[in-house]
Nucleic acid binder design. Sequence first.
DNA 1: GTCAAGCACTCTAGCGAAGAGAGTGCCAGT
DNA 2: ACTGGCACTCTCTTCGCTAGAGTGCTTGAC
Lengths: 343, 343
Amino acid sequence: MKERHEHILGEVVRAYLNTGQPVGSRTLAEQGELGLSPASIRNVMAELERQGMLSSPHTSAGRVPTDSGLRYFVDSLMAVDPDMNQQLENAVAGHLPGTPERNILLKRATDELASLTHFAGMVWVHEQGFNRINRIELVPVSSEKLLAVIVTDSGEVQNRLIVRPGDTSDAQLHEISLRLNELLSGCNLEEARLRLQREMETDRLKVRHLLEDLKRWADAPTEGQTEMFVSGQRQLLEMPEFAVVDTIRSLMCAIEEREQLLHLVEQVESEESGVKVFIGSEHALVNMEQVSVVLSRYQGPANLVGTLGVIGPRRMHYERVVPIVDCTAKWVSRMLGGGLQTK
Amino acid sequence: MKERHEHILGEVVRAYLNTGQPVGSRTLAEQGELGLSPASIRNVMAELERQGMLSSPHTSAGRVPTDSGLRYFVDSLMAVDPDMNQQLENAVAGHLPGTPERNILLKRATDELASLTHFAGMVWVHEQGFNRINRIELVPVSSEKLLAVIVTDSGEVQNRLIVRPGDTSDAQLHEISLRLNELLSGCNLEEARLRLQREMETDRLKVRHLLEDLKRWADAPTEGQTEMFVSGQRQLLEMPEFAVVDTIRSLMCAIEEREQLLHLVEQVESEESGVKVFIGSEHALVNMEQVSVVLSRYQGPANLVGTLGVIGPRRMHYERVVPIVDCTAKWVSRMLGGGLQTK
DNA sequence: GTCAAGCACTCTAGCGAAGAGAGTGCCAGT
DNA sequence: ACTGGCACTCTCTTCGCTAGAGTGCTTGAC
């Protein structure tokens, strides 16, 4: 594409991102960035419209960038301020200190995404079903109940109340704990199930009921296999383009139902450069042509991998949002990798 | 109030709850419940308007019940179908089987409230700061980290990663666990802090760092001292009265900020009959005159007490919503009381 | 060949007028 | 005490009009 065309496309996009309104040739000329008359700008704009980069809502409105136009802008024209990147990294790291438990860390990252971008922040955890049990502990709670705590090697903590075998002292319970750790440490779910089954048959510890309870836990389809955190949905209501309830409704539905979004998340490859942007109809979410999604993979230790990003109006400042998502993903990877490494 | 007036007020409210539109004298007469001519109905309606039970948006619209009108209806006119109560109890109990961990149970109750009413369901837990530690356990996670699990006597499970003291074997860790249990079982937060302080001075176990970590935990302002679960916000978007974005925005703000709602929750006394209804301006939430809140206390074991309910449009079917909230509160109380009692 | 100026054309947003519809209040009659 | 009838009021919708903004095209200058 000719340099002048790129220049003008860039200006149209920038003006559109700022105002959300169609931009006309005169406003662009008066703005003075180009040093051209409205008429000349018009010629170029007409050309860009033929190429599918711009479109006009009607004859006498200005031009609005199409999805392709925004795509070209994001891919080739967008200039990321190098200062900002540094600044952002500091901001992200500053707001998110410490190494808390995994889910708390991820929840905080979600909040941070939302507050930095003013859109809705989202974080997914893909278990991949390969979690290995790192530790299992039985904590006495009352005479009838005990709490089974499992720590996986990806740093996740799960706990569940189960029935306490009759007449077991705390010391005996500790015995059983030790035995279970021998038995199950390093197992994934599948193996754990098998070994529990085998153990039930010999049952040296006479705790058949307890083993059954545990097995039932392992058998249950691991709900929340892809966990999801969301934050800041409210801020989307502030955007003027969502003043029509219909759009916001589709948006909330998509967030609550998760199916559609998961499908999108799968398209983000971890090998790629990092951030992936879906503009308007590119993400194929129904009734959400006015919505864009910016995502990036993060990588924790072992088999923990996830995706995070934001969902917001098509008219978002990609120059700012893309680095935010990028920094957050890197920061989360670093925190997870550094803080929870199990070996 | 005269019987006829009550009768007509009741019909106006019912018609309004169904349609959401102002109701006129003719529609009411044609409906045939009253056996009166439009003119007679008009006379009564004018009287009711003078009493502040009804109001007309403008001269030639029908009448809409005021907050007082709805209040009178809820207090004196509302007939709760006795069958429904039984039916609801079955429905609630049916959808919510088992006795999982406390927070999961409460989350499920929230979902159930939302799905039964089609509004947003909410559940709060008021800790009252009196929680006693029932059990504390240290679970080894890696060579550098361990997981501290605390079970309170209200059945709540908290866990946190802390630094593992250098060169401690799993067996030693168990030793420390036992000692900590001796030290802290039955303590509330205040006592725990004191005892940890004292222990740090003598420190028989040479684990000063660990004790410091724990103390820091106890010192931290217990965040989420009033926990809150929300579900089904999306369904509020379906309500035609929330088609204007402003109302829904205030609503989402109120839910996310929590402050205002907490203030409201405090007004629900546990001794009272059960369900408390706040209609329109009664709850003094800003910009939410079109919103009603229905709440009830539930009572768990020991010092665990909470509030649950729904938030929805002023025009809700109170005859249905009130028993739903009532049943859910009773069911939650039963589940918590029965399943997690510690002694 | 490139750019700018001018002009006719098109489309929308906003405003006021007019008419339909719904509901009321009041009066008179049974 | 209740009802039928009538005049009145207010809103909602539709229609037509105008001002404003922006375009495309043609023509002329460098």
